[in-house]
Design a protein around this nucleic acid. Sequence first.
RNA 1: GCGAAAGUGGCGGAACUGGCAGACGCGCUGGACUUAGGAUCCAGUAGCCGAAAGGCUGUGGGGGUUCAAAUCCCCCCUUUCGCACCA
Length: 860
Amino acid sequence: MGYNRLDMSEYRPQAIEEKWQQRWRDSRAFEVTEDRARPKFYCLEMFAYPSGHAHVGHVRNYMIGDVMARTKRMRGFNVLHPFGWDAFGLPAENAAIKNGIHPETSTLANIAHMKGQLQRLGISYAWERELATCMPDYYRWNQWLFLRMFERDLAYRRRSTVNWCSSCQTVLANEQVVDGGCWRCHTLVTNRDLEQWFFRITHYADELLSAIDTLTDWPEKVLTMQRNWIGRSEGARIRFPLVDPSGTGGSTDIEVFTTRIDTIYGATFVLLAPEHALVERLAAESADPASLRASADRFRRQERSARITGDAEKEGFSTGRFALNPFTGEQVPIWVANFVLGEYGTGAVMAVPAHDQRDFEFATKYRLPIRVVIQPEADGAQPLDAAVLTAAYSEPGRVVNSGDCSGLWSTDALVTMAEMAERRGIGQRTVQFRLKDWGVSRQRYWGTPIPIIHCAACGLVPVPDDQLPVELPRITEFTGRGDSPLASVPEFVNVPCPRCGAPARRETDTMDTFVDSSWYFYRFCDAKNSTQAFDPATVAYWGPVDFYSGGVEHAILHLIYSRFFARVFRDLGMVNHGEPFARLLTQGMVLKDGAVMSKSKGNVVDPDDMIRKYGADALRLYVMFVAPPEKEVEWTDAGLEGAFRFLMRVWRFVQAWREAVARASGDAIAAGSLSDAERALRRKTHDTIRRVTQDIDPRVHLNTAVSALMELVNELYLFSEQHTTAGATTRRMEEGLAVAGERPETVAVLREAIEALVLMLSPFTPHMAEELWEGLGKSGGIVVEPWPSFDPEVARADEVVVPVQVNGKLRGRITVPADCDEDTIRAAALADPAVAVHTAGRTVKKVIVAKGKLVSIVVQ
RNA sequence: GCGAAAGUGGCGGAACUGGCAGACGCGCUGGACUUAGGAUCCAGUAGCCGAAAGGCUGUGGGGGUUCAAAUCCCCCCUUUCGCACCA
């Protein structure tokens, strides 16, 4: 066959990919140890929930990290790039309830499958450090940390109203309630009173907020979301004494939280949340307890569902009782209102209808008094009149009708009146956070057992460290009932109290899986440690994570919890930094038919299908090229074909020149005198090195890095066609043309270009790059090869083309020496015939020379 | 409602500090090579006028700053995302 030679050199990705993956595995190419002589780079992608199958959205995230890791490695960094599994969680348990397969069985099977998928992509993971959070050698450290937090009062137990998902039959953290529904199944969330374990994240609320300013390499969007979530507001707590109906002085106060104490003279009633503790007492003391209780009950139930429909009508009822406004000394009515939140502030507010829109609506509806205490002073502002007010005025202004404070500017009154309250002992300034303590109890099986024993005599007794881990018992039946499944395992529950030896009961709740994911990045540094969670010295070397990428859906949950845990570990003396992730990249999702890929929608693109068709390298290249990493993209098969075509183009070109280039001497460039075309090709090569290097790091514009490589390949084809004796690449291959006739200089510049191309391609398409590199006669593999270096001398053009504008319009282009001075450029621009046409007969008023960029001529 | 980000060819996108708008790719059109081409190579591809040279218009809309604006400022429109009675 005449086409034998072409067949021999055809690009067959599958065989190549298997070969190199095997070599990397055999040589443990991506395992690392601490090496203080080299700068470290900790590159991490958010570990995976083993749902069963990876889709191309996963692929995109892992590729971003792999390009960074591989590039950094070539640039001399000691790169830690690990991977693992967020293996506990509800779906596995739900599946068990449905089909009877034990969560451990399905989880391990899913991990095995997904691991295979990822390995077929050739990601440069240090697989030796792989971890799965469902393994006792991982979760025992969750338990260890829980106990340290318990000792420090950072983990505590209290009865509380919790978010309850009736479908998942479990408690949800506030962060897991989305639009009033369960974040996972969207079922309407209801309330339930349970004894729950909490982590005191609010202890770090101020620091978690203020340190956001130090996260300069995080997306602004994520920082804003975290700021809002923590929600700090400065204000005051003020006590309104409850007026006893019998007239005798009661000792009860209603404490309200306000950020607008400057309006307190306008507080004409007090509002309680339906959940407020006083509501039950006032009901009991009222004439008709049953009716008040029923109304409060109705509000409590309404609360959650109202959020979904958006704005529930503001409703309330009077308790028939009064409180004393401590500033005015007036008796003000106490109402219960559905829009007052029990869990924020004190669960009670002073209502100032003239200056708060919600209070205004409420007062209008129920004909409660409205009193203006702030007057606007803007130009042309009409004085407010309570009788004709149509909306609350909530801007700053002049304080009026407010005793000694009248006449103050409202923002000053904020301070003055708070001080007055403190002096009089009726309140104090406080900072209130929206962030609440993290409820970590889950009444589920597939999670970390909480290492606490309940003893009738001793109370809450921690499991001694030397008895960790408390292993999950193997249970065989999954019913999905509301109680913790662990409660049905007597040999697990019934234990002697570690302190007094009396019969006691184990805690049967398990931990929220977000506990697992809040510190796994430390475990990766020292994944096999069997005596501690990690060696602090090792984490001191690797930490913090330098580059972290994952979905924006973790902007608050995982990323706040991890920042919290970093501080807990810091205060335990185990890490020396506060922020665990120096740089964060939130990658955009990959959509198919405009929707997120999911099994139920049937629009999942399986990477294995793509690998079978085009190879892993084409898939990798495509997902990097299609758009900037942060952007959402729509999957198209045509785009993947384009990436594959490009790789074939590279492959053919390198094959065509392989032998000639492998034999070439590197001296030819230095010794010989280059033709213009050869110099231009060198320039393109070095300019491409510069662009690709910067595009990858620090810019992480991986799509433009790829396009720069495509440009270089286009240039190489043109050069081969026009400036070599062999001519067109295809013919050269088909006819098996000899290479002997080529100028040594030509081969030398081609060699430089091809080598740089293959090296720079290697983070994107590592298998093909390795294969080509080997074909070029190189040994040792690209993974140990240094990144090509850019020579600004070579990249600099001798001549540059400078566009010339006349009155802002492009009129000509001049070619001048690159080191030309301004006067010469100006003269050349004015002399250019195309420019002269537009300046003829006019006065040149101004000539601006933007060095190396453009000449701008202003004429009149 | 509040907050954030973004609007560029038929499509994905590029344009780094204000300096040639549309790189690179997809798609489309034409040509070469071919028994054939859905392979490959070459060329063209924002709109309008023009045979061409060239000219005019153009980065959601309107205004402004500047020699020069996709980029900076003001107003408006649209989309996406986040928060959503937080007192």
